[in-house]
Nucleic acid binder design. Structure first.
Lengths: 208, 208
DNA sequence: ACCTGAACACCGTTCAAGT
DNA sequence: ACCTGAACACCGTTCAAGT
């Protein structure tokens, strides 16, 4: 973890402050949410001065983008693992992915919020978008598998993947942001997701 | 608009500062987005001291909640008007609503973001939730009409409405937040929405 | 090269004081 | 009752200075 320290006693504070800041930031976001996230407090956690981060991140926004990127990497891994463990890589795999997607959001709202924060310009942080795209690719490939298995054209794979992704994202967002107050969320969310996948599946079967 | 002013010359600044603050806030949010929204700047716009708002709103969050509430009222009106103008109040009406929904978001991202801001606790601002619920009701009623027109049970109206709402919300959010980079958004968003409504419609026809 | 200390502008909130 | 002025704590960012 810690890079080989320079040997001049204890010279400065860290071997890898950049990484340490990211770790402290992830903790802080999980604790207080993106709203309560403060550069100053990250510095306190990492034990450095408030000016230190600027050597490694251009500004607060850049650090948030790094948090989001790390979040999407984790997201990708969880989706990929879930798909691996599913025996079926087509329609049942899709259900697995969809459930995993929403569970991730519910299990960690603050991080999910940072990942999809509207404050983070995707044009400004291409790596953020690229990492999100990689996670999305797990869905994309599965949808492609579904189409192939159904003897359908794969030319609309992207739009169809967008369709199922947006639906999961919509449910997850509404759920996490407290808009689903008239149902027992914890119990019914899987049901909602299943319905979403089901209507999507029907859509595929009905498409050319 | 302006309440009857007390006659002691020009006594203080406003007849209705609360309303003036809300108007200034809406402008500011539309200009700079929720991130750039600042109490101090609202005060400057309204021409009052920075302490003045605290007589009318408990804190910054409460003012944001008021903005969001006003947003949902407008949202409700636009949805209701769109439905009125649609000759069909069932499936075609649903398409109209869905398109109106997403267009609203695209036409004014900052306000849409405040409305669905995760920082605004719905438990803390029941009026915010109630107003959102009223907008949602337009969808709810239309879904109910669809079910009735199809001779289906209406016992799952809520969950089904949630399904179409979340799908629209997911698409709108991804769109507004810059995640739809591989399609020409402006042109294809209506198409996406139509696909969403279509698969939803099939779902209804296939349900008990 | 990497970090500190001090400084600056700005913000949210409070409170005594004014009318 | 409604607003101001001044004050406080806190934050993001910069920059000269240290090692």
């Amino acid at each position: 973890m810690v890079k080989p320290e320079t040997r001049t006693g204890k010279s400065y504070h860290h071997g890898d402050l950049k990484e340490a800041l990211l770790r402290a930031s992830l903790e802080l976001v999980d604790e207080k949410g993106p709203h309560g996230f403060t550069l100053a407090e990250v510095c306190r956690k990492a034990g450095v001065s408030v000016a230190a981060p600027y050597r490694h991140y251009r500004d607060k926004e850049a650090l948030l983008a790094a948090i989001a990127t790390a979040g999407f990497e984790l997201y990708h891994d969880q989706l990929a693992r879930a798909l691996e463990q599913s025996e079926d890589k087509t329609f049942k795999g899709l259900t697995t992915l969809a459930r995993t997607y929403v569970r991730f959001a519910i299990a960690n709202p603050p991080r999910y919020r940072v990942m999809f924060s509207s404050d983070l310009s995707k044009a400004k942080f291409p790596e953020l978008y690229a990492t999100a795209r990689r996670a999305f690719d797990v869905v994309f490939c599965t949808v492609e598998n579904c189409l192939i298995a159904s003897n359908k054209s794969t030319e609309n794979t992207y739009v169809l993947s967008l369709l199922i992704w947006s639906h999961c994202h919509g449910i997850a967002t509404l759920c996490v942001d407290g808009f689903l107050r008239e149902i027992a969320v914890e119990e019914q969310v899987d049901h909602l997701i299943d319905l979403a996948v089901e209507s999507f599946t029907n859509k595929i079967h009905g498409s050319p």
